[in-house]
Amino acid sequence: MQKILFIDRDGTIIEENNKNYQIDSIEKVKFYPRVISYLSKILNELDYEFIMVSNQDGLGTNKFPENKFWPIHNNILSVLESEGIFFKYIHIDKSFKNEKSNNRKPNIGMLYEYLNNKLSYNIKDSFVIGDRLTDVLLANNLGCKSIWIKKNNDHYENFTEEEKVYYSNLDKEILNKTIKLKTDNWKEIYKYLKYKRKKRLVYKRITLETNVEISLCIYGNGKYNINTGIGFFDHLLEQISVHSLMDINIKIIGDNNIDEHHIVEDCGITFGKIFNKLLYKKGIERYGFYILPMDDCLSKVVIDLGGREQLSWKAKFYREKIGNVSTEMFYHFFKSFSSSAKCNIHIDSTGINEHHKIESIFKCFSRAIKMAIKKNYTNKIFSSKGLL
């Protein structure tokens, strides 16, 4: 489903005219600092569709004739389009505030089509970006989030007396939930929208054999807290976090009194499921590969996050156990992950030291994932089918 940025015009894309609040001459057009650069980056690198929503009080009246508005408005759009910035739709309300039009922000009369088409639009993860309190309230009324932009980052002192009274009577808890960023800097808006993809997900899988809880952030800092009850397996899972930079918390309670089979298997299943749920398939490289030496060992891992499950395993172990993990379970972990994450994994390793061999495999796996999930800043899916 498509996410949207509902973007105000005056005071957001171009500077507000504080004299009569009308941009009725070309001399009054002044673009907000660096707005063109960062709107272009947002549109090309991230996954949002742009829709302009603007109140233009009394447009079409004698005080604000349309022949003074449209040439200037079209010139603004032309400048933006010359930098590859396009708005899918433009909604402009011409009414005065006292008319209480259902189309006037913060009312949502102009925007019902997006709310009613829930199969096409993801309103929950969309944003309204604007400089007025009405833009914040529009976000709340739509059920999305707000980025509140104000010159000099002043979100209260510049209010009119009427706005101050209105603001003081609002439910601040609702506002705090709606407003996700307050800034006067378009670079900060870009960075917030880009890196908010660092979301964390917690996934639990409970069977009669194991109780698995995994918390994962794909775009993290390599932080981990892992306790499976199997020391050497913890050590290997830590390599995934360290070398992929994913933040991973794993806690497993299982029937280790029998053997390690169910714990390793269910960890692979659960880890694969949460990875697949978090995986953002637009704008990633999709493929990853890595070759890594570790003393006498040389390992190679190739990954395709293409939605098809397959494991090719070319690694022989000549000891029954490494640490307290049966060597046959290494294949089983990656097979379980591949099936749940719906990805192809090809693993090849040679060497003498069995500890080095499996550790280098896990490190290669981690580096290959890091490459495959790297953002390519095209917002495209690398598939001729158009989906993964």
Rank of each mutant, 00 (worst) to 15 (best):
S384Q: 11
I253H: 13
N18R: 14
S326F: 14
N324A: 00
Y203P: 06
T183F: 00
Y21M: 04
G386M: 09
A139P: 04
I361M: 04
G58V: 02
N98R: 11
G11C: 07
D184I: 06
K63F: 12
L142M: 12
L237W: 09
K151W: 09
T207W: 00
T183C: 08
I76Q: 07
K97R: 13
N344Y: 13
F96G: 04
C297I: 10
S349K: 01
S40Y: 11
I13K: 01
I274S: 09
K380R: 15
H155P: 12
D131R: 05
E173C: 07
C364M: 09
Y290I: 07
E163Q: 09
H262L: 02
F334P: 10
F271R: 00
K357H: 05
I230A: 06
I226V: 11
N379G: 04
T378C: 02
S349Q: 06
N221K: 14
E99N: 14
E260R: 02
I240Y: 02
I90W: 00
S78Q: 12
K282Y: 11
C267P: 08
S383I: 03
E16R: 10
G254T: 06
E285M: 07
L236T: 11
M110Q: 15
P33T: 01
E188G: 05
N107E: 15
T327A: 06
H355G: 04
Y48G: 02
E15C: 10
H332N: 12
K105S: 03
K164G: 03
Y377Q: 12
I284C: 08
N221E: 14
N17M: 01
I14S: 03
K357P: 12
M110H: 08
D295K: 08
K342N: 08
A372Y: 00
F330Y: 13
N107R: 11
